[in-house]
Design a protein around this nucleic acid. Structure first.
Lengths: 206, 206
DNA sequence: CCGTTTAGCTTACAACTGTTCGCTCATTCT
DNA sequence: AGAATGAGCGAACAGTTGTAAGCTAAACGG
C-alpha cells in the first residue's frame, strides 16, 4: 500500500473515531486525544502526525459536517422539484438529517455556541450557506426586496435549526408534530413578510 | 456570626466564583471544582459541604439564571404598560439582558444543548415559562386558538433567544440592527398567524 | 541499491483532576 | 458546663490528561 494512501487511511480512522465518540452525553470538548487515538488504533503520540492539536481535528469535523449539510441541500432541491411544496419538503428533509445524523447535527449545534471562537465562526459560516441560498430563492419567487428576503431567510433557518435541536431530546413520537408545527410557523413568516413587508410600521398592541 | 449565616455566605462565594469564571471561552463543563474552590477562598474538599458534586452546583446556577429571566419578564411587563409596543419593548428588554449579563445568558444557551440531560431539561423548563406567558398574552389579545397561540409564542421565543446568541459574537455596533431585524421578524409572525392561522393549507410554491 | 523521509511506536514527565480520610475547633444544643 | 454537631483544612491517592524525546522500520527518491 502506498504511503500517502496509508496516511490518509489512519487520518480517516481518527476522524471516524472522533465522530463515533460524539453523543448526547459527550461533546467535542470532552473528547480526549488519547481516547480518540485509542479507538483509531494508534498510539497517542501518533495523533500529531495528522493534526497539530485537537482544535485542528475539531475544525475538520465541522468542515465535514458542513459538507453533509450542503449535500442535504442538494437532495432537498431534487425533492422539491418533484414534490412542489418548498417549505414542507425542506423541513422534512432537514428533520430526516437531524434524526439520521444526530451526532453530526449535535456537533454543529453545540460548537455554534461553544468556547472556541474559531469553531463558532466556522459553524456560523456553514449556516450562512443555508441562509444565502434560501434568501436567493425568496428573492426569485417573491417580490421581496433583498434585505427583507435575507431577514426572512434568517428567521426560517433559525426556526428549523432549533426545532431540530428540540427533536434531539423529544421522543420519536413527537417528530411529526414538531415537523408540522415548524411548517406552520414558516408559512406564517412567509405570509406575514409578503403582506406586511412593505409597511413595517407599528400598529395595534403588537 | 451565626453558623448558618456563615455557611450561606461561603455558599454564595462558591456560586459567585462559578459565575465569574464563566466566559466566552469557558463553559460550565470546563470549570474545575478546584479552581472554583480556590476563587471562593476555600479548600477543594470544603466544596462538598455545600454541593454533592459539580452537577449540583450547575443546576443551582441554572436556577439562578432562570430567576433572573423571570425578573426580566416582570420588568418588561412594566415597560410595556408605559410604552405600548409589546414586541419592540420585549425584544429591547431581552437584548439588554443578554448584553448586560452575557455570562448568565451563555450558561442557558450552552446547557440547553449540553451534555447533561438534567441541565438540558432544567433550561428547557425555564424557557417554557417565557413561552407559556407569551402564549397566554397572545390568547388574550388576539383571536388565535390555543394551539396556534402556543406555536406562535414558541417561534417568537426561539427567534429572540437565538438572536441573542448572535449578538454575543457580534460587535456592539450590530446590536441595533439585530434588534430591529428581530422586531420585524416577530411582526411578520404575528401578522401571518393572524391572517393565515385559520386556513393553514398549502397554496403557492411555499 | 543506498540514503532519506516519515508514520508509528515506547517511554517518560509534569500537571492537573475529583475524592477519601482524619483532624481541628468554633458554634450549637441540652 | 459539657457533649454534639459540622464547616473547613491538609495530606494523600489513583486516575487522567497533553506532549516531548528518541527509536524502528517500511516506503520512497535518486
Amino acid at each position: 500500500m502506498s504511503r500517502a494512501e496509508q496516511k490518509e487511511r489512519t487520518r480517516r480512522a481518527i476522524i471516524n473515531a472522533a465522530f463515533s465518540q460524539l453523543s448526547a452525553d459527550k461533546s467535542f470538548a470532552s473528547l480526549s486525544l488519547r481516547e480518540v487515538a485509542r479507538e483509531a488504533g494508534i498510539a497517542p503520540t501518533s495523533f500529531y502526525r495528522h493534526f497539530a492539536d485537537m482544535d485542528e481535528l475539531g475544525l475538520t469535523l465541522v468542515d465535514e459536517a458542513g459538507l453533509m449539510l450542503r449535500q442535504l441541500m442538494r437532495q432537498a432541491r431534487q425533492r422539491i422539484e418533484k414534490n412542489g411544496s418548498v417549505i414542507r419538503t425542506s423541513v422534512e428533509t432537514f428533520m430526516e438529517f437531524v434524526t439520521g445524523n444526530s451526532n453530526v447535527f449535535r456537533l454543529l449545534l453545540r460548537e455554534r455556541s461553544g468556547t472556541s471562537a474559531a469553531f463558532r465562526s466556522a459553524v456560523a459560516r456553514e449556516i450562512q450557506h443555508f441562509v444565502a441560498e434560501l434568501a436567493e430563492y425568496l428573492r426569485k419567487e417573491t417580490t421581496c426586496p433583498d434585505e427583507l428576503a435575507r431577514a426572512q431567510a434568517e428567521a426560517m433557518v433559525t426556526l428549523v435549526f432549533h426545532t431540530g435541536a428540540d427533536a434531539l431530546d423529544a421522543p420519536a413520537s413527537q417528530y411529526a408534530y414538531l415537523t408540522s408545527r415548524t411548517i406552520t410557523q414558516l408559512r406564517w413568516l412567509a405570509h406575514g413578510a409578503a403582506s406586511y413587508g412593505r409597511k413595517p410600521k407599528e400598529q395595534g398592541p403588537l
